[in-house]
């Protein structure tokens, strides 16, 4: 650490260009032949700053290992959380209007049941569109199926066809004859809406009289200018979700949406 600081200080003392080239070589910093002194200093400085940041991250980890336990091994041990709670559970949550996330946990009984399925059976997830209905196992508007290997996966991201619709997931298996058997059913999850209501009804409340009025309005006075979702050049492989949303897969976070945070 100190060595880098010393070099930084030395850079401020207006060293000779030959010495700078030598130092760059020592540090393994690439410099071009035609570079002027000022440029070499800049390149070295930036490289050192990068190294310092790297070691900063490592050290920050050390200070961040808070808690009552001080020794490294104990900290490590503390961080292992259970892989399962041994209960049957299937939960469906909204990510955005086009993606839902399901996770599951299995009880030992269910695991045994799955392990003893007859040869040729297949564990699958079924996603049902259950908008405006009480699901009875067979009345979904649409049903989608994907097979999963529950030995390796404990969750799944569904790209759903309709925003604003209600969905439900079942985890089950198909027996060798192709018959689907449910093992678990999730909660109902509404995919968020990303479009304005088509209703022209307006309800109003008079706060003094507490009276309500309902009428059919022609047009709203302010038509929103919504945010466009898109990219300036489309590479299908890089951007797997041309339908919009799904940016969680790109791991991109725009700052413009309002969150800063320290």
């Amino acid at each position: 650490m100190l060595v880098y600081e010393d070099i930084l200080e030395w850079l401020d003392t207006n060293p000779r260009i030959q010495d700078l080239r030598k130092k760059a070589k020592e540090l393994g910093v690439k410099i071009k032949k035609r570079m002027r002194k000022r440029e070499i200093i800049k390149v070295i400085r930036e490289d050192i700053m990068k190294r310092l940041e790297g070691s900063e991250e490592r050290r920050a980890n050390v200070t961040s290992n808070f808690g009552e336990v001080q020794s490294q091994s104990e900290v490590k041990k503390a961080q292992d959380l259970p892989q399962t709670y041994g209960k049957d559970k299937l939960v469906l949550m909204p990510v955005n209007p086009h993606w839902l996330h399901a996770y599951w946990d299995l009880s030992p009984n269910t695991i045994r049941a799955i392990e003893s399925l007859p040869l040729g059976s297949k564990v699958v997830l079924r996603l049902h569109d259950v908008t405006y209905i009480i699901f009875d196992g067979s009345n979904a508007h649409r049903t989608f199926e994907v097979s999963v290997d529950i030995r390796f996966t404990k969750n799944y991201y569904f790209n759903v066809p309709v925003a604003g619709a209600d969905y439900l997931v079942e985890l089950g298996y198909k027996d060798p004859t192709g018959k689907f058997v449910t093992l678990m059913r999730s909660n109902v999850c509404k995919a968020p809406k990303d479009y304005p209501s088509s209703s022209t009804r307006e309800r109003w409340l008079d706060l003094r009289t507490k009276k309500k009025r309902v009428f059919v309005a022609g047009e709203v006075v302010v038509k929103p200018v919504e945010k466009a979702v898109g990219v300036s050049s489309m590479n299908v492989l890089e951007n797997p979700s041309p339908s919009g949303g799904g940016s969680f897969m790109w791991e991109k976070v725009k700052s413009g949406a309002g969150k800063g945070g320290l």
Binding site: P94, V95, H101, K227, F248, V253, S255, K259
Partner: peptide, 12 residues
């Protein structure tokens, strides 16, 4: 008010 307006900043 997270990026893209829904839950993906917190669930990904």
């Amino acid at each position: 008010w997270g990026a893209n307006g829904y839950n993906e900043v917190w669930l990904n």
